[in-house]
Design a binder for these strands. Structure first.
Lengths: 219, 219
DNA sequence: ACGCTAGGTCTACGGTGTAAACTTGTCAAC
DNA sequence: GTTGACAAGTTTACACCGTAGACCTAGCGT
């Protein structure tokens, strides 16, 4: 039986905030807008979130909760590392416009802590001493978040027609540069504006990070 | 002789915006605030910038203009690459809170284009084909921007006392975790919260990127 | 039965970006 | 010289934002 006519569930609020941000961008996530979606006064949100920042943090935590950690295995450390990083990226990929919110939450939200610990564990297995593993891990994670944040189409989605139009314009601007001065840029304008395949984009990004880690590994 | 009592120089506006952002954060950069600094009405800014976004873009361009490209040399490609990336990071380092604004401007502002072209040139010298160089270069640059953006003290500066206090709190939160569950995190809490040396932080970041590039280099 | 309180509401305030209409020095051309 | 024209600053106004503070009021624990 319904106890109260209006009953706000914070988790649902975060869910609609996520949906809103995914479709209209983070700027569209507004207390008033959110309240309206739940047929409630803006101030009602303050019963569940102390701040707008608090709500945004909850949004970041929400993303981290989607991480599906790979189960432990006996494979070589590099392979496990790649699995871990891939799992992380997979959780963020569906939400490029909010992925940045996880930056400050990894060492706070439980799923982030879990991932951080397991990642460092792998690095230590690989021969890094713990403090070095901490720094390397930190930077690698940041790089991967940026990878998602700066994904080709992260700017706008509306309908694909507008997106396509924007890309066309960018491509044109780049191609219009002086080929004498910028031969490589004009020559690769298409690739620069938008990589051929999103999957390739991500796998290259992960390759770069993994290769970097391997490269700075102590002898 | 002064031609007009009020004469706004866009470059000076951008300069004060930069100063403001450096000391008080990007949120403090407000049209009204900026106008006030130049003893002018907020709307006056619209004679020189079409948008706030336009002004922010100008700020990003301003940062890129600080890049001091290394002069061409015959050294091995890896060394030249490191020089180039180091020069880029050096330009952004003094302004961690605005460094992110360069993300969208590199392929637009002239100094950014120059750097991009030269970087790709180095990569091609190193054996990358141009399109691969484009993707690798793009992601490396993004990683380095993030490196600056997420620099340990990027959050707040006011006086170092407040900053130190915030760090202490973070450290405490991390150390308070269950050491059974998060042995590595609790063990390296100090490092995670703030790397020992800022210079080491940056040189590790650059090392990671360079090593990554070397690692994905085609045979 | 009764007070407490969690979880809503209402009103109001200061701050933000910016659209539209206006004023006013400055200079080029007649 | 006088006269437009125009670039650059002003004024006013608007819609929207986050949020402080005072106010209900339904429902539960004692």
């Amino acid at each position: 039986m319904p106890t109260l006519t209006k009953r706000l569930d914070p988790a649902q609020v975060v869910d609609s905030a996520l949906e809103l941000a995914d479709t209209e961008g983070l700027d569209a996530v507004t207390l008033r807008r959110l309240a309206q979606l739940h047929e409630v006064t803006p101030m009602a949100l303050y019963r569940h979130f102390s701040d707008k920042l608090d709500l945004l943090n909850a949004l970041g935590d929400r993303l981290l909760a989607d991480i599906e950690l790979p189960e432990p295995s006996e494979r070589p450390w590099e392979e496990r590392l790649r699995q871990m990083l891939t799992a992380f990226v997979a959780a963020l990929r569906p939400h490029p416009r909010v992925a940045g919110l996880t930056l400050t939450r990894i060492l706070i939200a439980e799923p982030g802590l879990e991932m951080a610990e397991r990642t460092m564990e792998i690095l230590v297995d690989g021969g890094f001493d713990p403090d070095y593993a901490a720094e390397v891990g930190r930077q690698s994670i940041c790089s991967l978040i940026t990878l998602v944040t700066t994904e080709p189409g992260a700017g706008e989605d509306p309908e694909p027609s507008a997106r396509e139009q924007a890309l066309r314009l960018k491509r044109a601007t780049l191609s219009a540069l002086d080929p004498k001065r910028y031969p490589l840029i004009t020559g690769t304008a298409d690739t620069l504006v938008c990589p051929a395949s999103t999957d390739d984009y991500y796998s290259l990004g992960i390759d770069l990070v993994v290769a970097g880690i391997r490269g700075v590994r102590p002898a």
